[in-house]
Amino acid sequence: MKVAVKVRLKKSILDPQGKAVNQALHQLGFDQISGVRVGKLIELEVADGQSKEDIQKIVEDASRKLLANTVIEDFEIEYPEAAK
């Protein structure tokens, strides 16, 4: 099954990339957009046939160990219906 992990810079941390995208959007006339922050979407293919709890544990562990650096980033996991 596919599990998505969204990784974002913590709110308190300046995101210069988002700022640059925001400026470019304003140059294109999208004045209604007042802020941009850029993050990552990581899609994992996780082997089926495991309990929901196991899958959740594996993905949390992977996110904490490698996918996100929790010094600077927060992560959010989206499971498909079957694993919720």
């Binding site: 810079l9 941390i13 300046l14 210069p16 990339q17 640059a20 650096n69 010094v71 600077i72």
Partner: peptide, 17 residues
């Protein structure tokens, strides 16, 4: 070294990009 935790903190994209 910061990624493996031998030193504290993190290194982020330069402010001026």
């Amino acid at each position: 070294l910061v990624e493996v935790g031998l030193l504290p903190g993190a290194l982020l994209r330069n402010e001026n990009l």
